[in-house]
């Protein structure tokens, strides 16, 4: 019988994935919010069925629309997520509020311990932030722990704030993914899913894996 087992942590090492989803009014047109909902659901479903993982993939979804951001799904192990409600679009683009919530989460060692693999933060937006966002943005990209997170970004349409999204994305292998149509939202989430899955299956899931946008799949409809 093992004499050292009692000193070993009995929980898998977490790999947090935090989604910052723009749910402002402009997301309600051209099928964008529907594509976002489908992309999110498929990503979570894929994570929950991964069998070769070396980490416990956890997901938090923060929606920013209306007057402030809202946690739609608190940090939860993917295999324990039974479903996620549909995001609805409306109101402003309060990115600063979303970044404050994400910042508090990542800096909180009781929720994301030091043995966790570095988090993946995904920002999806089709517009310009219009709350008090500059301070939270600087805190997030320069924070003690947040700066170490892998950050992916997707810009939807020509109204997206490319400058801010480009500064947000910090993976040299994955610059901001720019799309003009909603179906690409799905492709982007597939790429994020594959990148996180590849990381979670490696011996050291902190190693960066490229964000490879899959070819447009013809059977995709919405």
């Amino acid at each position: 019988m093992s004499q050292l087992k009692k000193f070993q942590v009995q929980e898998a090492r977490p790999l947090p994935v935090i989604i910052l989803a723009d749910t402002s009014g402009s997301m309600s047109v051209d099928g964008k919010i529907e594509a976002l909902n489908r992309g999110l659901r498929e990503m979570i479903s894929s994570f929950s069925t991964e069998s070769r993982v070396r980490a416990e993939i956890q997901v938090e979804v923060i929606a920013f629309g209306g007057n402030s951001a809202e946690v739609i799904l608190g940090l939860t192990s993917a295999h324990q997520i039974e479903g996620i409600g549909n995001l609805t679009a409306g109101g402003m683009t309060p990115l600063g509020s979303a970044l404050r919530i994400a910042n508090e989460l990542i800096e909180d060692k009781s929720r994301i311990p030091s043995r966790a693999y570095k988090p993946v933060v995904v920002l999806v937006s089709d517009g310009h932030p219009n709350d008090d966002w500059e301070g939270p943005f600087e805190s997030f990209v320069n924070g003690e722990r947040t700066a170490k997170a892998t950050r992916f970004a997707m810009a939807i349409g020509s109204d997206a704030d490319m400058d801010t999204l480009s500064r947000f994305a910090n993976d040299p292998e994955a610059p901001v993914f720019l799309t003009e149509n909603a179906r690409d939202i799905h492709r982007f989430f597939r790429a994020v899913t594959m990148s996180v899955s590849a990381r979670s299956q490696s011996v050291k899931p902190n190693q960066s894996t490229p964000l490879e946008i899959p070819a447009d799949d013809e059977d995709w409809e919405f």
């Binding site: 093992s2 050292l4 009995q10 929980e11 898998a12 090492r13 993982v53 070396r54 416990e56 011996v203």
Partner: peptide, 14 residues
């Protein structure tokens, strides 16, 4: 033997 029988779920490292 102790290292081979490591008990942390999903551990993978040497």
């Amino acid at each position: 033997a102790e290292l081979k029988n490591w008990s942390t779920p999903r551990h993978g490292d040497d």
